[in-house]
């Protein structure tokens, strides 16, 4: 019983770690580095905003919030797929 459980968990944990890469590392790095291109991008405009500013405020917040929401939904499907979700 114990051995079988452990074999089931290994792919689950691999997927969970992949989640970290796609929903924390990639968007996190993007958020952290996007403001550094502020001045270069400000030459163009979008919706009346300078592009660099738009990315550094609206873009950053959008990416961050969407990454969190997407993570919540994806991780729940990963849990269900591997049968480790909660039964309520």
């Amino acid at each position: 019983m114990r051995g079988r459980q452990r074999r089931q968990r290994r792919p689950y944990w691999r997927w969970t770690k992949l989640q970290l890469f796609t929903h924390l590392l990639v968007p996190g790095t993007a958020i952290l580095l996007a403001p550094l291109f502020f001045d270069e991008l400000n030459a163009s405009r979008i919706l009346g905003f300078p592009l660099g500013y738009f990315i550094a405020v609206h873009g950053v917040l959008l990416v961050g919030v969407l990454a969190v929401l997407r993570f919540v939904a994806r991780q729940d499907s990963v849990d269900r797929w591997h049968g480790v979700h909660e039964e309520i």
């Binding site: 970290l20 968007p27 958020i31 550094a56 950053v60 969190v68």
Partner: peptide
Amino acid sequence: GYDAFSVGIGLLLGVMVLVSL
């Protein structure tokens, strides 16, 4: 001006770390 937004970005990153880690 914009420079102070760094703290806000930090808060958002903190929430990202909290939810996933």
